[in-house]
């Protein structure tokens, strides 16, 4: 079955017809061409597909596209303004990425964290990011990046 939906995507309204089988991740990647949110486990276990739904981090692979009608969705493509977002810059500078597959999801979860808590400590960062797996870095440099970014924010 097809349903028309419209939602705010990175601040702009988009409208499309989706089937009930499509997830938000499918819609973003296949219908809207935004491949920043990564498809990895596709079962809600790894966090590579994390996007913000009404400002809250969710696994886009576990949200149906029809459900987001009327909502606001933010993806990594919306993070950058004129310049890189402080979190993006810090992730680069602190070497918080290797293969990079987890990076977009981690950036969005971290962005939501900083919106709630502008100066998180290490434990708070670890707990907030517990739903994002990284197989490469060992996490230490990602935590450092979030701390650096929190200090850099105005």
């Amino acid at each position: 079955m097809k349903y028309p939906i419209s939602f705010h995507l990175n601040g702009k309204i988009v409208s499309l017809e989706v089937s009930t089988q499509e997830t938000l991740l499918d819609a973003l990647r296949q219908r809207l061409g935004l491949t920043g949110a990564k498809e990895a486990c596709n079962e809600g276990n790894c966090g590579a597909c994390t996007v913000l739904l009404n400002s809250a981090p969710v696994y886009a692979c576990m949200v149906l596209a029809v459900e987001v009608d009327g909502s606001a969705v933010e993806t990594v493509e919306g993070m950058e303004g004129e310049e890189l977002h402080p979190l993006q810059k810090a992730l680069i500078d602190q070497h918080g990425l290797q293969c990079g597959y987890c990076s977009p999801g981690i950036l969005l979860t971290a962005q939501a964290l900083l919106a709630h808590n502008s100066r998180p400590n290490k434990t708070q960062i670890r707990e907030a990011l517990a739903g994002n797996l990284c197989r490469c870095t060992g996490y230490t440099d990602i935590i450092k990046a979030v701390q650096v970014a929190s200090r850099a924010r105005r």
Partner: peptide
């Protein structure tokens, strides 16, 4: 890493 910016911007 030289490809870092492309990775963090998706």
């Amino acid at each position: 890493r030289i490809e870092a910016e492309a990775k963090v911007t998706g």
